[in-house]
Design a protein around this nucleic acid. Structure first.
Length: 588
DNA sequence: CATGTCACG
DNA sequence: ACGTACGTGACATGA
């Protein structure tokens, strides 16, 4: 096999491990495919009962390392970022990553599944051996290390083989733009994500423990208050029990209250806010919900996720989940850390930089609105951005027919709501609700908006028509977003697809742009030999850990690099705003 | 495993 | 009669 490896210029590769958590996974075996239908499996970590005879792990890795680290030997796999972490756990830097079947599928059909089993069936018509068929599922699942060598070999070798075949097949389906997105955007981004995941972020455990204790005390008080208001104890965290207390026991009228999908009366925030002026319990529940969320999801949970190896938290970025091209973050999700309320925001004080470093955050200013200005070609909107105006104020001035300096704060708020709402395809109903005005006024307001911004109205219309005619819309860089429901005979589903069609090019183009920024920032840090590192991405924001000696350089260069990613492709400027601090809150 | 709820951009 | 602004992930409950 080593002889073959020395001759090969491209291989399929896959690892079998003890865990889905890549940075803590131990190797069980490695499979390598040389061509369609030809692959080997090297067991190195099976239990003795599963594989009585195995080569020595360190010996195997020592012999493979030069090949794995050889950038000239092309590696193809399924979600190679995972395998890259596994190899990195053994001090092997996987090089020459030239293709990834998961990312290839994502480029072609972001709205469908990208699992290897599913792809093999869909594209190659090949039935796969499933992981579950070998290891079972749920509580009774066994470790891959305990799978007998015969079965393990079939399974593992097949995965490397199918990934190799699939990647070639999918690559051949791409047009020139898609191929460019794949090779120049998604594959390089995967490398940046690998680095960011590996870097992790330092979390102050003591700070979170303090907050947990405070929240715990507050929650105890609220619990007692709730029991008193309800006249009996109950589980505040149970929507079912709460519903019984409010609408059966207390007999609160349910007329006009929102229902859940299953037809019960909802106890969500909007409903409780509605009831709060008339009853004490809803207000208590609202406070309880907000604090309980902070405690269970953030202040209690994040410390559990700190790696004992380096005292840092390592998220996993999912690159092929969101149909618009956005990333998603999980285990833990670092893209939904609270910011909107003061109590929630405190969680960010626990995201810290080590001694001698600071947190630097840079976020794109109104990137989706700028993209709307570009895509619609609307002169007024574009001019406002080019002149660095306050766009919401300008919108208010246009729509209310007054001078910008005479716009009241309420008028500006209206304009801001409509500017953002349009990005999501909001209608008069939604606008009326979020502004607290009636439908007719909302309709009026929208009409005036479109009269002042005819380019935007045309864009909305054009996008819907394109979606209906082609079944997909595109981002500025040619990422395709399919809308299967655009011809659904259910009017609600169809309307939903139309709103998605309007939103997708804006959200998707913004995603493309920040992905380019991540690639460029990463290359700049390497080429300028800086120690500063990317540690998080939150859709329109990049967060870095910056050594103090590099702070001035980063403060100057980071927004510059981020603003230049669209060079020549957008008819509006991009602006990135930088903040610095000892923690993520202060960096905002 | 489904449901309801709520955190983010 | 229903739903009504797009895209995500995580938690607690309860069947």
């Amino acid at each position: 096999m080593l002889d073959k490896l020395a001759q090969a210029d491209k291989i399929g590769i896959d690892t079998e491990t003890t865990s889905l958590d890549a940075m803590n996974a131990a190797l069980v075996g490695i499979s390598i495919a040389f061509q369609a239908g030809e692959a080997v499996y090297i067991p190195v970590g099976h239990s003795l009962t599963a594989a009585p005879e195995q080569l020595d792990l360190q010996d195997v890795l020592g012999r493979l390392k030069p090949h794995l680290e050889n950038p000239a030997l092309k590696k193809i796999g399924q979600n190679l970022k995972y395998d890259q972490h596994v190899f990195a756990n053994y001090d092997i830097a996987l090089k020459g990553i030239a293709g990834d079947s998961m990312l290839a599928s994502y480029i072609i059909e972001s709205h469908l599944g990208h699992g290897l089993d599913e792809l093999s069936e869909r594209w190659l018509g090949l039935e796969t051996i499933t992981y579950e068929s070998l290891c079972g599922k749920g509580a009774k699942q066994i470790s891959f290390a305990d799978v007998a060598i015969g079965q393990a070999t079939e399974y593992a070798a097949q995965d490397a083989d199918f990934a190799l075949r699939l990647e070639a097949h999918l690559r051949a389906q791409m047009d020139a733009k898609q191929l460019e997105m794949y090779e120049k955007m998604e594959l390089p981004v995967a490398q940046v994500l690998f680095e960011m995941e590996r870097n992790g972020v330092q979390i102050d455990r003591t700070e979170l423990a303090r907050q947990s204790a405070e929240l715990g005390a507050e929650l105890m008080k609220l619990e007692q208050e709730a029991y008193a208001a309800a006249g009996q104890p109950f589980n505040l965290n149970s929507p079912k029990q709460l519903q019984e207390i409010l609408f059966d026991k207390m007999g609160i009228p349910t007329k006009g209250l929102k229902k859940t999908a299953k037809g019960g009366i909802s106890t969500n925030e909007a409903v409780l806010e509605q009831l709060a002026p008339d009853y004490p319990l809803p207000k208590i529940i609202l406070q309880n919900r907000s604090l309980a969320k902070l405690k269970s999801t953030y202040t209690d949970k994040l410390p559990e996720m700190i790696s004992p190896k380096d005292g840092r938290v390592h998220t996993t970025y999912a690159q092929a989940v969101a149909i618009t091209g956005r990333l998603a973050s999980n285990n833990p999700n670092l893209q939904n850390i609270p910011i909107r309320t003061a109590e929630g925001r405190r969680v960010r004080r626990a995201f810290t930089a080590p001694q001698g470093s600071v947190i630097v955050s840079a976020d794109y200013s109104q990137i989706e609105l700028r993209i709307m200005a570009h895509l619609s070609g609307d002169k007024t909107l574009i001019t406002a951005f080019q002149n660095g105006e306050d766009v919401h104020r300008r919108t208010a001035a246009e729509v209310f027919g007054i001078a910008p300096e005479n716009v009241s704060s309420e008028q500006r708020r209206y304009a801001k709501t409509i500017n953002f709402g349009l990005i999501y395809g909001m209608g008069q109903y939604g606008l009326a609700k979020s502004l607290g005005i009636d439908n007719i006024s909302a309709k009026n307001f929208i009409d005036r908006y479109f009269a002042r911004y005819p380019g935007v109205a045309e864009y909305m219309q054009r996008t819907k028509e394109q979606a209906a005619a082609q079944g997909f819309v595109e981002t500025l860089f040619g990422r395709r977003l399919y809308l299967p429901d655009i011809h659904n005979k259910n009017a609600n589903a169809r309307a939903g697809a139309e709103r998605a069609a309007i939103n997708a090019p804006m959200q998707g183009t913004a995603s493309d742009l920040i992905k380019r920024a991540m690639i460029d920032v990463s290359r700049w840090l390497v080429s300028d030999d800086l120690q500063s590192k990317l540690i998080m991405q939150v859709h329109d924001e990049l967060v870095l850990e910056v050594v103090e000696s590099e702070l001035e350089t980063v403060k100057t260069m980071l927004p510059k690099v981020m603003a230049e990613v669209a060079q020549g492709r957008l008819n509006v400027l991009l602006l990135a705003e930088v903040g610095v601090g000892g923690n993520w809150d202060d960096a905002h």
